[in-house]
């Protein structure tokens, strides 16, 4: 475990070290680029505020993703069952995926009011397409031999969905979740900055940018990075337990060459 953690920690320390050196050696002025040591010091000083804000952002991202996942499972099951539903839904999902959601955050805030609701809505909206496509792909990849076997004892559609199709979709859903972690956090951050609830890391970042408080802004960026890292680690742990039967989770075979 320690050995597996060592490499990424070294990588990050080297990255931050180079950054620190560049700033110090070239005497870069703080409003252009701050040294990481200064950002970390600021973050440490205001740790309680940032932790509280990060907790809010984490909840927005998490519950928004859960809503996205639930909607995606329903929509994806329908798409996997019917080509018409698939062809009708695909362009809408693709539009959702490629349009800049930042542009309509304002409208959503006007519509849903400030606070948690627009944050959950936007996060769910931007995470939904990837989850849906993963559901469709995963369900379609269900082993045909097993499908036939279940048909031979007249298993109901619901039983096939529950016993075969949903578990078959788990690996691709985890892949989508990995991609969605970053997306959900960024969406949550941007909505928090765009609404007037004054909570979450996004709100801190927005205020700092408006007041030209570089340290506070960069500390918010670092807090987001930490939050993202912890989220990905948590996701990996869940994946290791849930997908323990899957090829991707098996220890590599010894090399006999």
């Amino acid at each position: 475990m320690i050995r597996r953690l060592a490499a990424p920690v070294v990588g990050i320390l080297v990255f931050l070290g180079v950054w620190e050196l560049v700033v110090r050696l070239n005497d870069v002025r703080p409003f252009v680029l701050r040294a990481p040591s200064r950002i970390v010091a600021y973050l440490w000083e205001h740790a309680a505020d940032y932790a509280a804000a990060a907790w809010v952002t984490a909840q927005h991202a998490f519950f928004g993703s859960v809503i996205a996942l639930l909607v995606a499972l329903v929509v994806g099951s329908m798409m996997a069952a019917s080509r018409f539903a698939e062809h009708a839904t695909q362009p809408v999902l693709t539009l959702l995926q490629v349009t800049p959601f930042v542009a309509y955050i304002g409208s959503v805030v006007l519509w849903l009011g400030s606070g948690t609701r627009p944050a959950l809505f936007i996060v769910a909206l931007v995470c939904m397409p990837a989850f849906t496509f993963a559901t469709v792909d995963g369900m379609r990849s269900a082993d045909p031999a097993t499908r036939e076997l279940l048909a031979s004892v007249d298993a109901s559609r619901w039983e096939v969905l529950w016993r075969l199709r949903l578990p078959s979709a788990l690996p691709s859903l985890f892949t989508a979740a990995r991609y969605n972690v970053g997306l959900a956090l960024i969406a949550a951050y941007l909505v928090e900055g765009g609404n007037f609830a004054n909570e979450g890391l996004g709100a801190i970042g927005k205020r700092a940018a408006a007041l030209n408080e570089g340290d506070a802004l960069w500390a918010a960026v670092f807090a987001m990075a930490l939050l993202g890292t912890f989220s990905l680690i948590a996701l990996s742990l869940v994946q290791r337990v849930v997908l323990r039967w899957h090829v991707s989770q098996r220890p590599p075979r010894p090399n006999w060459d």
Partner: peptide, 19 residues
């Protein structure tokens, strides 16, 4: 017969569920 589970199949591939 199928709806009453009167036929048990052994397919060419085992078709086991990996989970």
């Amino acid at each position: 017969a199928r709806s009453h589970k009167r036929v048990a199949m052994v397919p060419q591939q085992p078709g086991l569920l990996p989970w």
